[in-house]
Design a protein around this nucleic acid. Structure first.
Lengths: 240, 240
DNA sequence: ATAGGATTAAAACGAGCGTTTGACGTTTTG
DNA sequence: CAAAACGTCAAACGCTCGTTTTAATCCTAT
């Protein structure tokens, strides 16, 4: 009973402008970044009053975190759930790398496919947030991702038992780099190259291109760290 | 003769503060990003007057571009020169992927090794600039990288003749993503994981870890784009 | 019907921003 | 040695920012 009343009130009124603020903020933060996006721009785009942003969220930083949390929380939860199911299905064997990567990608794909829930915009925003220097963003992201990453790192460790822990950590780092960079879609190089016409390629095809690439990287032979790799030092010496 | 006079005057006077401004700007832009770094902060750190920045560089944007150009121009030129030499040495055969990657990495490594010339700081700044949404940054980077990337793309195309052009473009995109993300060192995930103690790992070892990973990705089998890859769709359907 | 909390609206706050100006030494030049 | 150019400096301009305040308005619950 009371639940219905609240639900109704939320549709027009309180939560309506709150959601409009989140939507507008999501789009604008993506386009201009955190610093360069003003609350005045956001509230105007949302058709709300300037004070509404601070009223509903307390501060600009909290608004930004709310924008991220709204999509990130469910997505990361889905990732872990998916990995859990894979592990249940293949137990007691280790889940193969392909499937671990799939558990990482599918929830992102699902989000990209759903324009109602932010769609591609949010993934771009997320990719951008990864590279933002603001301390509160860094802190927030690390908190949000901590448990998920640890779960996946453990899964990869079982799938690649020969790989040293340190090396695995780095390769996971590379994976997240390529993933966020790709999802962010900020590649300045893309603009000029003949890659341009494929702007229309959707994120699904994109992730399917990325998956084999990362898989190849994961299974790559170990680097020779003590012994100098020939390709490198040779040329550092006999430089012109 | 005249060259000496200029060199002397540059040490104390005009170019002295100009260089101090560039150094201070480089460090501060890296730490806080473009938007969040004020000219007042930069000029104060450089021990110069506020107006000096606009006097020497015209605007904040031009100062930023000057910071990038100072290191980026020579680095990219070295990359192309190195690739040229490799091609001369192995002609008429195609240069192997390992060496093409080396031509890409070595100049970055050289820069990271030279603390006098910006060292790691600049690479971090560069990685951060890659993800910056500001249009003038994007335009600037694409102009700076255009020819270099095209040269390397052609080299990779010769080394990997079986790879479709489109696929190669994307894999190059992934490579630049992992590279810039790694050099930027902004990984929020690193903060909490047990990866932490290796903060001390220098960029050289880091790039040597990255190289085999990317090589594995480059040589990965082609993705199945028409035919749905089993791992993916299976789970999109039977979602809970 | 109405009291009271929730939400909006409009205005103002102080601070910080990039940029410009004009005066003042200093150096270079003819 | 005068003149022109260069570099530095303090001050100010106009603007936008995030946030706060004050009052008016709407909605729900008694």
């Amino acid at each position: 009973m009371k639940g219905n009343v609240i639900a109704l009130t939320e549709l027009r009124g309180a939560a309506a402008t709150k959601d409009r603020l989140l939507d507008a903020a999501e789009a604008l933060f993506m386009e201009h970044g955190f610093e360069a996006t003003s609350l005045r721009l956001i509230t105007a785009a949302a058709g709300a009053n300037l004070a509404a942003a601070n009223y509903h969220f307390g501060s600009k930083e909290e608004l930004f975190q709310a924008v991220l949390t709204r999509r990130l929380d469910p997505m990361n939860q889905q990732r872990v759930e998916l990995l859990d199911r894979f592990e249940r299905e293949t137990a007691p064997d280790a889940v193969r790398c392909e499937r671990i990567l799939a558990a990482l990608f599918i929830p992102a794909l699902r989000l990209a496919r759903d324009p109602q829930r932010g769609g591609t915009n949010f993934l771009r925003l997320l990719g951008r947030a990864y590279a933002d220097p603001a301390p509160f963003i860094r802190r927030f992201l690390s908190e949000q991702y901590a448990q998920m990453i640890d779960r996946f790192k453990a899964a990869f460790a079982r799938a690649l038992p020969h790989l040293p822990k340190k090396e695995l950590s780095w390769r996971l780092h590379f994976i997240m780099g390529a993933l966020s960079y790709t999802l962010a879609g900020t590649d300045a190089l893309k603009i000029i190259s003949e890659l341009n016409p494929l702007e229309t390629e959707n994120d699904e095809i994109l992730l399917r291109r990325l998956a084999p690439f990362l898989l190849g990287g994961l299974n790559a032979p170990l680097p020779e760290l003590n012994d100098v790799s020939r390709e490198f030092d040779l040329d550092l010496e006999r430089r012109t």
